[in-house]
Amino acid sequence: MPVSDAAMPQGTTSGPEPGGERGAGMMRAAPRTLSGWAEFGRLLRHLRRRAGLTQSQLGLRLGYHHSLISKWESGLRELPAPLVARLDTVLGTGGELGAAEARLRAAGSAPRPLTAVVPAPARPPSRPDTPAVRHLDEHGRPEPPLAADETATLLGFLDHQRATLAWKCEGLDEAGLRATVATSSLTLGGMLKHLACVEDRWCSHWLHGRDPHPPWDTVDWAADPDWDWNSAAGDSPRQLRTLWRDSVTRSRRLVAEALAESGPERLALRARPDGSRASLRWILCHLIEEYARHNGHADLIRESVDGRTGA
């Protein structure tokens, strides 16, 4: 049965709403479908539904906002060749999208470098978890904004690091996620589980003072301080990726809530033993540091698995 697509957030537009604060009395022209890409979009929608994914779920796997997936499926945005290849991998299409893109290229509708425009709601003026414009690099990762405010810059760098981890783990089977380098016991699977734990620990447990989410709520950390790393060997690739993606989704929502309350100065609700509490600014910096450190490890492990390199 086809999976229903996630609805756009109320008030989300690519411009002023008719009758809104900035759009009273204005009429918007219908979006223009790009020549040749409507058929590609219909194929993408069919393959996504065949894979049992909503637009939000596919966007999460790729690191993009679901509104951009909707534009691709409607033929309103072109896709660069590297992103088409990623879609084929994520959806398990056997190269159907790549073949369709090759036909477009042969017909003169070759994709251009992509600038992903993520609409911002009219009210409030901006969403702290979704920068208005994101440029995507050759690996489909959102690049941090060059001249944004503090919050957008921090979130931009964090999302870039998250997308880097997803790229380093992309397409690997159980053996690939369990591979090690030299005498180190670090694995990409362990990295996914560890960073899922880090996301929940800082954005839920510390920032909002909540009890640990499963599976962390039943762990005896005193018996095994590295349980997140060690237990990953018993999890399937699907379980590890789902655990990490769910943690990231939850973190984005919780960080947005905290930012809406009092910005990056918002203090964690849970205090350290000495009574001190970290600010949201500190937490975001720490998450960036944590991801960047482990992505360096991920570079070496992935190269040892199949030769893939790149930072």
Rank of each mutant, 00 (worst) to 15 (best):
N230L: 03
R245G: 14
M191A: 11
L192V: 02
S185F: 05
L172S: 04
S231G: 00
E170K: 06
S204W: 12
G171H: 02
R250H: 13
H208N: 09
D226L: 11
A196F: 08
P215G: 06
P212T: 06
Q239Y: 06
H213L: 10
D211F: 05
P237A: 04
G189S: 03
P214V: 08
R178T: 06
G234K: 06
D235W: 14
A196R: 01
D217K: 02
L254A: 07
A233L: 05
L177G: 03
R253I: 12
R252Y: 10
R252L: 11
S262K: 15
A260E: 14
R245M: 12
R162T: 05
G263N: 02
E257Q: 13
Q239D: 15
L254P: 01
L165P: 00
V181D: 02
R210C: 13
D224A: 04
M191W: 07
T187G: 00
P225Y: 01
H205L: 12
E174W: 08
L172P: 00
T164C: 10
R252H: 14
R253W: 13
L207P: 03
G176P: 02
T218K: 14
A182K: 10
A233Y: 05
A223N: 00
L192G: 03
T187W: 01
K193H: 15
G209D: 02
K168E: 06
S231Q: 09
L186M: 11
G171E: 04
T180E: 06
A166M: 15
T242P: 03
C203M: 11
K168V: 01
T249V: 12
T183E: 15
M191N: 14
A179K: 09
W227K: 02
T164G: 14
A179L: 07
E261K: 10
L195H: 09
W229G: 03
D246S: 11
R178K: 09
G234V: 02
L186Y: 12
L254Q: 15
A222F: 10
D226S: 11
W206E: 10
H194N: 06
P214A: 13
V248Y: 09
D220N: 07
C203G: 07
C203L: 10
T242I: 10
K168I: 07
R162H: 15
L243W: 08
S262E: 14
D200C: 08
A223C: 04
D200N: 14
E261Y: 04
K168A: 07
Q161T: 09
W206K: 10
W167F: 12
L207Y: 01
A233F: 05
Q239H: 13
G171S: 02
Q161L: 09
G263F: 04
T183G: 09
L195R: 01
